[in-house]
Write a protein that binds this DNA or RNA. Structure first.
Lengths: 302, 302
DNA sequence: GCGAAACGGTGCAAAAAACGCATCACTAGG
DNA sequence: CCTAGTGATGCGTTTTTTGCACCGTTTCGC
């Protein structure tokens, strides 16, 4: 909208850190952009950017302003969505950051179900580790985050919290296949396929090992749970995943799973959250409602 | 601010109900104003006003929009106030709607105390009956409302609630002067000075009388508690007020007071509130904090 | 029943704002 | 010491906004 162009410009400049670079992506001359910023600063009565030799950076005032700007833009979106709503169109867009475990089964099914009821709603799904997911929320790039073992920032508001025990995933031919539960000492006798350090599953396993005065030496390490899972079908190794990433049928045929005993590795929590005090667009709010219902129906509430 | 002029224009038009009249007060030509509105509507993709033969009126969309507009303007004020705050100026403005009982003692003292700490903060105090006070909140004309026996709309968020018994106020020469408490049957033997129907004190007394199958016939009726109180010094009548309007010394000399027994007239509630989900400017928020503390220190929390 | 007045809408020219280009002053890094 | 990159600025041009005059319509009062 026209009256927010200055805001969008400032937002872009703050991201890129340079007026000239921002001007390029905004299809505008640096001089015009520069003057818009100067005019705005004069109108506000305060500097927004500090001018550095290599570009510009947000001021203290600028930090406040940028938050305000993103909130305003998001509010306008919400208004538009409401208007579309009462004109019967039911448009909207939902942007959600999530842990990888949600990608194979849970989110596709939930989104499909939602879209059956509201076909004009579109989605963005951004796989992120837990820290990055919360970053997306605070920068207003996402409406919702669904993450395992979140860092739980103060600005994070939980909408639903469910318990998720760590499960080992292995080929049906693995010596441990068929066990009801696994103890950590069993697990440690076999080669391990672990996610990298930022991930919650890795954290929980590392902490468990540390309590026994040991460390984990992964045979295979990856950022991709999908890769780890597929690899486990090819060798007698152990991969790990949480139940929501193992929706039934549990990879019928090529893989089996068993929970790691809670005495060794306590269950982590999967958390659906939003930015505190943010009013979500209608579409996002309703999708969040659906997720909350579904999570609480299918899993243990923490 | 420049980018909000269209919003301010629309706000004014919605208040006045006519583009031409609004243009007059906005110092602009009707044609210019008209075209701004048309351009905005086109940009939004929806009509905001419905065009009537006698002017314009807000649409359903317009109702949503106007709320958004006022919220945005208020948010910008809050941002500015925060910026001024961190530049050490501590400016700000607090606008509060209140019942008349707050006018003589409580609010003057509270505002004076606040201004001793923050001399650059300015105040608006708007005496309103309880319905009007909440109207001021929903239209963003006030930040806070401090009212006796509020209607309690859904959009009203209570910050503090304290109990206030109805007290009779009379001259020291009145036959009932000196009593510890008064029963309703005592009260009814004397001429009554009552506020008009919209006020909470009147409501409580009327209800009490109705429970005894009787009605009240006021000898004197007025919108002004100040007038009623002063009149009580001149004749053997009974006026009524709540304790917060009778701060000690209780009109030492010319008036005395005594509570009406709670068995006859239950205590009403005095409520400090704001518009639900609204983020207040810093000055208003801090003043509200002060009021909450003071109310809870001095009176019974309901 | 018929003007007068008030309303929103529109064409056109003038005024104002925004813009693009060329250029300056400055800093960091080679 | 020179080059490349940065933000700032003067000036002519383009785009946007505004004011004026006027139109079609409706309502109200005489």
């Amino acid at each position: 909208m026209r009256h927010l162009v200055t805001y969008r410009f400032i937002d872009e400049v703050s991201k890129v850190g340079s007026i000239r670079k921002a001007a390029e992506t905004l299809n505008i001359t640096p001089s015009a952009l520069n003057r818009r910023i100067q005019a705005f600063e004069e109108e506000l009565g305060a500097q927004v950017f500090e001018r550095l030799p290599r570009g510009v950076r947000l001021n203290t005032v600028g930090e406040l302003l940028i938050h305000h700007i993103r909130s305003q833009i998001s509010d306008l979106d919400r208004l538009k969505s409401r208007i579309a709503d009462l004109e019967g169109v039911r448009r909207g867009h939902v942007s959600i950051a999530c842990s990888q475990a949600l990608l194979p089964y849970f989110l596709p099914r939930q989104i499909a179900a939602y879209r059956r009821a509201h076909p004009a709603v579109t989605f963005s799904v951004l796989p992120r580790d837990r820290a990055a997911a919360e970053q997306e929320l605070t920068s207003y790039r996402c409406d919702l985050a669904l993450v395992f073992e979140p860092v739980r920032l103060a600005e994070f508001q939980a909408l639903a919290v469910v318990r998720q025990a760590v499960h080992a995933v292995m080929a049906p031919t693995h010596p441990l296949a068929g066990r009801e539960t696994l103890r950590l000492r069993d697990v440690q006798r076999y080669p391990l396929c672990l996610p990298t350090v930022p991930y919650g599953v890795r954290q929980l396993l590392e902490q468990a090992a540390a309590r026994r005065g040991e460390t984990l030496t992964p045979t295979l390490e990856s950022d991709s749970f999908e890769f780890l899972r597929h690899y486990a079908a090819n060798e007698a190794v152990l991969a790990f995943q949480i139940p929501i990433g193992l929706q039934p049928p549990v990879h019928a045929g090529d893989l089996v799973s068993a929970p790691v005993d809670a005495r060794d590795v306590p269950a982590g929590v999967l958390l659906l959250g939003q930015l505190r005090h943010r009013a979500l667009p209608v579409a996002s709010a309703r999708f969040a409602d659906q997720l909350v219902t579904e999570l609480q129906r299918s899993f243990d509430v923490a």
